[in-house]
Design a binder for these strands. Structure first.
Lengths: 342, 342
DNA sequence: CTGTTAGCGCGTTCAT
DNA sequence: ATGAACGCGCTAACAG
């Protein structure tokens, strides 16, 4: 197979009338190159449409200029936003972003091992992989620094929010509005609960306990389908809750759908609160907890870049703030216990 | 700077008790390696956690095993799904996916040139970049085969749907239901219209003309905000339309929001049709045109892989089918011209 | 400030 | 079926 006919550094050198190493220095922005020469070289490179081969330079420097991002899914809003943040940060630091959809966490181990990471990327960012306490060790054998995004991992570089505190704030908001019967809808699949969900539940429970209110938790499948099912169960209880706090906006949307199809009014009959502030939340006028997903991506990429530049393991923890976004899906509770208030 | 301490191929060779070239052959699945030896080598590599350095092998083969994907945005549903399709296909063909968010198309040219594509990736997939007729030529100078996804480009490998025909089908569905006053909401920003939007408009117009109905087009900013504004304008007309066809689900969602906030019933008062079948559509019970976005990603990645393997330019066109997904946002028109029908 | 030289890790001849 | 030697394009250390 013939080697591709791309221009090489020697072509640029010839055109600029200098030596190979001068081109290398000039293009790399290294010091010790006369400004006029540098300009010449850059022009020659541009005219040839030349770009350095990262493969060749990485062979020497031991750096690839690439960061791998591992996501469980690509489709949900959350990952698109996080990737956008990372992309922005990596663009400014001149690094490239490799994206791998790892899918089911149960096959995570095997998949990670099959990935060409070691000596092919400088760092890995693992996004919302919901690892168990010890599972982070799986990343040790890939021989590349890892930054965790949207999950706090002990003694590892990670970027995260305080799900527990944020959920407690959200629950308190409902309590402060005067709600006493507040349900929490959480989701669970074959893999079990996500850590985020787990932490949010704890925050909800803490706030309820603090207020002397009895917790009411329903568990359904993930996504808006689960939200619809959960709300269905709540609406068929003897004493339906006046407010529902869903684990995520997606779950909340399912809950809202059921309420609206039943022609019950939100928030008159039942208040609904979500978590995420995804793009759907604004559309649906959903009160929710906003988490800075884009910024989490930025910070994760920044942490990765720092780790690479420092060439030593980093275990910095970056906790980002959440904020309650109050919209029209929450209000003071209905006065009576009848669903329609009539 | 010390070279990283990853295991090299020679380490595997030593451990397996064979030579370097045998390891290379075994790991690459080349012929001419005794089965027992191959097994030994693979075990040794696994034990060492060794993976081939693509940089080094690419230096020899001229192939990087990487495909770059260029997207204007990362956040919208569409791109996540398309990337998921590509990711799936690339995983099965053992290639890695580099993702670049190119952002504003106006700076596309400069950005593409700054990207380390030539001799760093084997192919480029450009997703929904909305290029003008001649703009595709910008990709020529990067010296890498390009596949266009979600845009038809003359004489270039591309994967796309027939937006015009799909939109005509959608409009015909509304006409067949008995609607005569059907509006189309399109979006436009500083960059102008997208090609998809443009093509859909043509389909709508053709279907309307065919039925002898007068077209009614409103143009607003992109996204659900534009949909809300557009619907506002339609609802304040002397003779509001009985059906609205939005350029996209996102726009349709904005339109739906306005209708619902006005306490007008969908589809009793006004039918609403979208385009995309995004995840929101199902949630909102929105009738829409489904386009196979995931499959478009798969096909684009497949085309890219074929082009690479054939090592010659490919200009195959892959047209994928759309289908109308009828939900509860469309129905026969209200009997009277009053908005509430009373 | 610039040029010369020696490898980086691997795939591919060509021997054996 | 296996091994030895060469070079892919580039950077780094050194010499000038």
């Amino acid at each position: 197979m013939a080697v591709s006919d791309h221009p090489r550094m020697s072509d640029v050198a010839e055109r600029a009338g200098v030596s190979l190493s001068t081109v290398s220095r000039a293009l790399r922005g290294a010091t010790g190159v006369a400004p006029s020469v540098r300009e010449n070289v850059e022009r020659a490179a541009a005219e040839l449409g030349y770009v350095v081969s990262r493969g060749a330079s990485g062979l020497v420097t031991g750096r690839t200029g690439r960061i791998a991002v591992l996501v469980p899914f690509l489709q949900p809003w959350f990952f698109g936003v996080a990737l956008a943040g990372m992309s922005t940060e990596m663009r400014s630091s001149g690094r490239d972003m490799l994206v791998y959809q790892v899918g089911d966490v149960t096959e995570l181990n095997a998949y990670i091992r099959s990935l060409p990471l070691r000596s092919n990327v400088d760092a890995v960012i693992a996004v919302a992989l919901d690892l168990e306490e010890g599972e982070a060790a799986r990343f040790d054998e890939i021989g590349v620094p890892v930054v965790f995004c949207s999950q706090r991992v002990k003694d590892r570089a990670s970027v995260f929010i305080d799900n527990t505190e944020a959920a407690a704030d959200a629950a308190r908001h409902l309590l402060n509005l005067g709600h006493a019967r507040i349900a929490y809808i959480q989701s669970s699949d074959e893999t079990g609960f996500s850590w985020a969900s787990h932490d949010r539940l704890r925050g909800y429970e803490a706030a309820m306990a603090e207020a002397g209110a009895a917790p009411l938790v329903v568990t359904e499948r993930p996504g808006h389908e689960g939200g619809a099912l959960g709300m269905g169960r709540l609406l068929s209880m003897a004493d339906p809750p006046t407010a529902v706090f869903a684990e995520s906006d997606d779950v909340a949307m399912g809950a809202l759908q059921v309420v609206r199809r039943s022609r019950l009014e939100v928030p008159d009959v039942v208040s609904v609160m979500g978590f995420d502030d995804s793009d759907m939340a604004a559309l649906a006028d959903l009160t929710t907890v906003a988490q800075p997903v884009f910024d989490m991506g930025v910070q994760a990429a920044r942490l990765a870049a720092e780790t690479i530049d420092a060439s030593e393991p980093c275990s910095e923890h970056v906790r980002l703030d959440t904020r309650l976004v109050v919209r029209r899906s929450t209000a003071v509770p209905r006065p009576t216990r009848s669903l329609t208030g009539r």
